[in-house]
Simulated assay, not measured.
Amino acid sequence: MRKGEAAALQWTDIDLKEKTISINKSLDFAEASKGNKDNMFGDTKTYNSKRIITISQSLANDLHFHKKFQNQNKTALNEHYHFDLNLVLCRNDGNFMPKSSLFNSFSRILKKADLPSLPIHSLRHTHAVLQLEAGTDMKYVQERLGHGSIQITADVYSHISKKIEQDRMSKFEEHMKNVLE
């Protein structure tokens, strides 16, 4: 997901039983920081960005645990909790997480893991490359990322991984052995 799509996720967008997430809006960080709750949710980047993605069982389990944690906060804070937003990724009081907090927490995680500083959007790229390295076809990755065309996905990701290049060459060599025999 793009950062705005992730920040806009509400629990009604997630089906833990079916293991799906409906991506149908984006958080406008500028409007949200002004306290303008009526305009804080906007459209996704493009028409094709609206999509339903499947998630792994382990992520569904993590989200279930996170929901329980949030429910404890809701009980403890009662009327001080922002029930109306129903956000998945939020502050402890249920309010939206500012863009700076999102970036700073990601930076702290990388620093703790002794990893170089990276933009948070790199998680989206990493996910796409790992999908491709696992053998997922380009069309699936295009739809998962919400790209308008397969060409966009191919232009950005097809040449990015040495593993993919090596796998393709190995498949080509194997094919040529069969052709020549």
Rank of each mutant, 00 (worst) to 15 (best):
M1E: 02
M1H: 04
R2K: 04
K3F: 08
A8T: 11
A8E: 07
L9F: 08
W11K: 04
T12I: 11
D15Q: 04
L16H: 08
L16Q: 09
E18F: 08
E18N: 14
T20N: 05
T20W: 07
I21V: 15
I23Y: 06
N24M: 02
S26P: 09
D28R: 04
F29E: 03
F29K: 10
F29Q: 06
A30V: 14
K34P: 07
N36Q: 11
K37V: 12
D38A: 14
D38C: 06
N39K: 13
N39E: 13
M40F: 12
D43R: 10
K45F: 00
N48V: 00
K50H: 03
I53S: 05
I55M: 04
I55E: 01
I55C: 03
L59V: 15
L59F: 12
N61V: 10
L63P: 02
L63Y: 04
H66D: 08
K67Y: 11
K67G: 07
K68I: 13
K68Q: 13
K68G: 08
F69P: 00
F69Y: 12
T75Q: 12
L77E: 09
F83V: 10
L85K: 13
L89I: 15
L89E: 04
C90D: 02
R91C: 08
N92M: 02
D93K: 07
G94W: 05
F96P: 08
S100F: 00
S101A: 14
F106S: 01
F106L: 01
I109M: 13
L110T: 01
K111H: 10
K112E: 15
D114R: 13
P116C: 09
P116S: 13
P116D: 13
L118M: 14
I120R: 04
H121P: 05
S122L: 05
S122V: 06
R124A: 04
H125M: 09
A128E: 10
L130V: 06
T136F: 03
K139L: 14
V141A: 03
Q142P: 00
Q142N: 00
E143V: 01
G146Y: 00
G148F: 00
S149M: 04
Q151M: 12
Q151W: 05
A154P: 01
D155P: 01
Y157R: 09
Y157A: 07
Y157S: 05
S158D: 01
S158T: 10
S158W: 01
H159I: 02
I160Y: 09
I164W: 00
E165S: 13
S170D: 15
E173Q: 14
K177A: 12
V179N: 07
